[in-house]
Every structure is written in structure tokens, then in C-alpha cells.
Nucleic acid binder design. Structure first.
Lengths: 203, 203
DNA sequence: TTTTATTGACCGACGCGTCGGTATTAATAT
DNA sequence: ATATTAATACCGACGCGTCGGTCAATAAAA
């Protein structure tokens, strides 16, 4: 009259972790349910006790990875108050993160993008709302720029365009990093970022 | 004792054109062989008389789209000699191209990227060599920057990093354009590009 | 008639999700 | 203590739909 007790939340997280590992190795599209199950050390059927379907695991993994990133950005913003420094920190952190910590992360993220793009037109339940994520980052960067302008520190550039450009540059670099890691010198890239994206902003 | 005569080259091109149309409508991954055949107005089996497999059609479509882009870049370079103007023209042209043909071209291109990324690690015969394409563009942009530096027009920034950054920015913007077309104002973006990516370069 | 082009019915591999059955645990009775 | 029981966790063989690629038959041109 009493069931086996399992920490379902913890197990969900373990499965998501396993999924991310496999995604990194084989690519999201080429990952089979059985691959995730094996990595998590459980049977395929058990996956369906914790997730409705493949899509569901996919979305959970995406959420997890994205929450990580946003928390770190938030931390940076609270450490620094000078707009130019905030931008610089965000750029440098992103570059570091992409290159050093996250060869894994990067290619998985690329897969998520590809999926997100593929799902934009059909009335798919937008499990992965890429647009929303972009909007959020755009708001953050544009906010910093506007603050700098109000303080008379930055030139009069369109804050939203600048934010789109900066986010685009980071994403695009991630793309190239995944393709040719040997070609992108992070240290130099940081300098170049500062020389172009930041110094030109300052009066 | 004489067969039906067909212009095989022309028919291949027709098929590739049909493929691109369908890719734009349904996304590369969701396009079935039968969809391409129907769009081209031929039977499914006939596809295999002109292409070895799906991969082959895919690669041909990619080549076609890419050759278009490169030819236009080359034309720009021959029209302009001033380095800063060359960069500006390339940026503006790319932005125009992306925005004008965003729906069709852009989302198909994103699919190609996603595929290219997915195929980087396994010893797949690199039908779609994304790395090579990137290298080519990088060489072009970096070359312009170096020329500007030699002429004493540009500041001393690392040409390769700059090129990666610029290409990244364009790609990343394309990504955002696909996601939220309404958010990206091309005219403003051109101005911002000039204010950040070009003016900061000039002494 | 011969040669080539075209076709779509067919095949088989593949992978998602299900389902019937098994294993494990904890409350309860003895 | 220990047997009993009930609720839940776990599993993997299998069903079924999907889709890339093949091939035997057909059409058309010369």
C-alpha cells in the first residue's frame, strides 16, 4: 500500500543532462530516443514516463541551456555599472564561453537554432521560441546603449539596430567557431570587438 | 535506332530550381523527393536519372544559390576601388539582398547552414563545405582591410578578426531577420553598420 | 524495331511511441 | 521480523507510418 518513491524532478534533470551530452556528440537531428536512454542508463520506455515525446525532451534541454546563459548575463550586469564596460563584459564573456567552455554547447545551440528556424512557419506549438529569446537579448543590449546615451557617453546610434548587430555578430562568430575553431583567435577577437563595436560608440 | 533527345543540363537546372522553390516553402529537412518531383512536373523516379540521391540535389541547390551570391560580390569589387566604399557596398548589398529575398533565400540558406554544421564531425563527404565558403568570404574582406591599411586609410586592427566579425554580423542579422522580419529596419541597420563597422576603421 | 526516357508501384530500413509484463519499494498485517 | 500487498517505476519487443531509392513496365522518338 505504498509505492516506490523516486525524485522525479531529479530524474528528469538527469535525463535532460544525458540528452544534452548526446546532442553534442551526434547532433540533435541524429539523436534517437534509444541513444538518450542508453546515455541516461535507463530503458527507452522509461523516457516516456518522464517526457511526452522527443519534442518534449528537446524543449527541456533547450530551456536548461538557455537559462544557464541568461543567469550569467544577469550576473555580469549587476557587477558593472558603466555602460561601455557592461557591453565589453558581455561580449568578452560570450566569446570566452563560446570558445573555451562550450565547444559542446555551441554546436548544440546551432542545432536548436536550425530547428527553431525550421519551425517558424507551420503553426507548430512554438515549443522553442527563438524569437522571444532574441527579443530578450535585444532589449538588454539596447537598454545599455540607451543608458549610455542618456549619460552622454555614447554617440547617437539607433539602439535597437546596434543591439541586433551586436547579437548578430556574436551568433555569427559562434557559427564560424563551430566551423573552423582554429581560425578564430579569441584574444584578437576581443580586441577587435572593442575597437569596432565599443570604441566607435563612445564619444 | 535513335533515342529521344533531352537537354540533360537544362533539365537538371529545372529540377534544381524546383527544389529551391520547395525548400523555401517547406524547409529542406521537410522536403520529400516526391515534393520536388511534383514541383518539377516529373515522376519521382526521373529525379534519379539526373541526381544520384537527395544529397546530390541538395548540394546542387546549394551551389547554385552560392554562386549567385559570389558573382554579385565580385561585381561590386570591380565597381569600387576605395576600401571603405567597397566594404560599405558589400554590407549594404548583403543587407538589401537578405531583406529583399529574406523569405525565400534566407530560410533556405539557414537550412543549408544547419545541415553543414551537422555534417562537420562525421567523415561525411563534405558535399556542402561551409567552411570553405566562409574562408573565401573571410579572405575577401580581410584583403580589403589590409589594402586600406597599406594605403594608410585604416587603423591597425587585425584584418582576419575584423573579417570574421563582419561576416558574423551579416550572418547573425540574417538569422534575426528570418525570426523577426518586422524588427529589423534595414535602412537604420545600414547606418548603424556604417557608424560602427566602417567609421571606426577609418583613421 | 531499337534505344533511351519516364514512371509510380513497390520495397525495406528506420525510428517513434505504445503496451503488456516485470521489478522494486514501502506500508501494513501477522 | 517477515510475509503480504499495492502502488509505482521500469523495460524493450513490436506495430505502424514514413520516406529514400529501385525496377519492371511503358512511352516516345528515330
Amino acid at each position: 500500500m505504498a509505492p516506490k518513491i523516486v525524485d522525479r524532478q531529479a530524474k528528469r534533470e538527469r535525463i535532460v543532462g544525458a540528452a544534452i551530452t548526446v546532442f553534442a556528440q551526434k547532433g540533435v537531428a541524429n539523436t534517437k530516443m534509444i541513444d538518450i536512454a542508453k546515455e541516461a542508463g535507463i530503458g527507452k520506455g522509461t523516457l516516456y514516463e518522464y517526457f511526452r515525446n522527443k519534442e518534449d525532451i528537446f524543449a527541456s534541454a533547450y530551456d536548461t541551456m538557455n537559462r544557464d546563459m541568461e543567469q550569467k548575463i544577469a550576473a555580469i550586469l549587476s557587477e558593472q555599472t558603466h555602460p561601455a564596460r557592461q557591453l565589453q563584459m558581455i561580449f568578452e564573456y560570450s566569446l570566452d564561453y563560446f570558445s573555451r567552455e562550450a565547444v559542446e554547447f555551441s554546436s548544440v545551440m546551432m542545432d536548436f537554432w536550425a530547428e527553431g528556424i525550421r519551425r517558424k512557419s507551420p503553426e507548430m506549438m512554438g515549443v522553442i521560441n527563438l524569437k522571444e529569446i532574441y527579443d530578450r537579448y535585444r532589449v538588454i543590449i539596447a537598454g545599455i546603449v540607451r543608458k549610455g546615451q542618456e549619460q552622454g557617453l555614447f554617440i547617437d546610434v539607433d539602439a535597437v539596430s546596434y543591439a541586433s548587430l551586436a547579437i548578430g555578430a556574436l551568433d555569427g562568430l559562434l557559427l564560424q567557431l563551430v566551423m573552423s575553431p582554429e581560425l578564430i583567435d579569441i584574444t584578437r577577437m576581443k580586441t577587435t570587438f572593442k575597437q569596432t563595436m565599443i570604441q566607435c560608440l563612445e564619444k
